Amino acid sequence: MLIIRPITENDREGLTELAKQTGTGFTSMQDCPRRIEDMIASGCAAFESGEPLEDGYYLFVAEDLEQDRLVGTCAIQAGVGLSDPFYSYHLDTTVHASRELNVYSKVQTLSLSNFHTGCTEMCTLFLLPEARKGFNGHLLSKSRFLFMGQNQHRFDSTVIAEMRGFSDQEGSSPFWEGLGRHFFNLDFATADKLSMHDKVFIAELMPKNPIYTNLLPSDAQQVIGHTHPHTLPARKLLESEGFRFNHYVDIFDAGPMLEAQVGDIRSVREQRRLTVVVDDTQRLYSSNPLMLSNGKIKNFRALATKHAQIINDSLYLNAYIADTLQLKQGDIAAVAPLFISAIAAE
């Protein structure tokens, strides 16, 4: 069973091992001791703060209870671009027309933008390949929506998620090679790592005027707005929750940005708060798995299970699941269907 919980100081070794397996292009978590320390410090500070932090970084880990080790991470950045600039390219269309010459052409352009400054970002989603089974991936991603639903005052009303863009098996990005390298003279992996610590150089070196994409190499044009194959499941999952491509892309690999209003996210909209009944006397079962959390902040816990049931507006749990969630008889739990509306079907 996986339990989703906040990062702690004791997770340094586990987080380091996860970071070694993320690969090029996974900007938010790389095999860098300085980055690991920053993630832990920022994550702990966000959960421990009694008041909302404008740019709070809520970092969760997925712990395999049987193996007693970390197998994944996910995070919520409460507000992006508030301490470091947050850049993206806006995809637009420019029309060139002349009646006299009978010419009419549409050209796609890329414009450097800070439009999403202050928005909440879903980020740092990673699950070890061997743990990508059952509904682990769905739990890891959607557990954040349980947390957001219970703490909406800590987040912006607009929620975004940057999808990893296409790169080849050697870690090279066609988009970066066709555009970014002309202004930075750095390979993709190096530029990606530098962006973790200092984004100012982006504003200093990137062109301020719109870029006509038809002037880029064909392989660079073809990957604009495309998602890395390894990230496609994560994109489909977010789209099932109500996220949509908003015509913004990453400035390094041109990966697409998805966007939703927090109140429109399915797992936020459909979650309920129910009173816990601990019952080991009957077989508890839901045909569709339920996503459960204890509704707390610093001691947040979430899991997904079929071995729980909603009866007469109460949540029935066995003692093991209740203990895992740090819940007891009479407590209030946050509940949402993991896939379709399992709650409505009860």
Rank of each mutant, 00 (worst) to 15 (best):
R5S: 12
P6E: 01
P6M: 01
T8D: 04
D11G: 04
D11R: 05
E13P: 01
L15T: 04
T16N: 01
T16C: 02
A19Q: 07
K20L: 04
G23N: 05
G23H: 07
D31Y: 07
P33W: 03
I36V: 07
A41Y: 03
A41L: 03
G43Y: 09
F47T: 06
E51F: 14
L53P: 02
D55W: 09
Y58L: 04
D64Q: 00
Q67F: 08
Q67T: 00
V71C: 07
G72F: 06
G72S: 02
T73R: 10
A75M: 06
I76Q: 07
L91I: 14
L91F: 06
D92P: 03
D92W: 03
T93V: 13
V95I: 13
H96Q: 13
L101P: 00
S111R: 15
L112R: 12
S113H: 10
F115G: 03
H116D: 11
E121I: 06
F126I: 04
K133V: 13
K133I: 10
K142A: 12
S143W: 02
F145S: 10
M148F: 01
G149N: 14
Q150C: 15
N151W: 08
H153L: 10
T158V: 14
P174E: 12
L179H: 15
R181A: 12
R181F: 11
F184G: 10
N185I: 02
A189Q: 06
A191C: 11
S195H: 03
S195D: 03
M196F: 11
D198E: 09
V200I: 12
F201K: 06
L205F: 13
M206E: 05
P207F: 02
K208S: 15
N209C: 02
L216H: 05
P217L: 01
Q222E: 15
H228S: 05
P229S: 01
H230L: 12
L232R: 09
E241Y: 01
E241K: 01
Y248M: 05
I251W: 10
F252Y: 12
Q261I: 00
Q261A: 12
V268F: 07
V268P: 08
L274H: 07
L274T: 04
V276L: 10
T281P: 01
S286Y: 11
P289N: 00
M291V: 03
L292F: 09
I297G: 11
F300C: 06
K306R: 15
H307C: 10
A308D: 09
I310M: 09
N312C: 08
D313H: 15
A319S: 15
Y320S: 14
T324I: 11
Q329Y: 03
G330W: 06
V335D: 08
L338I: 10
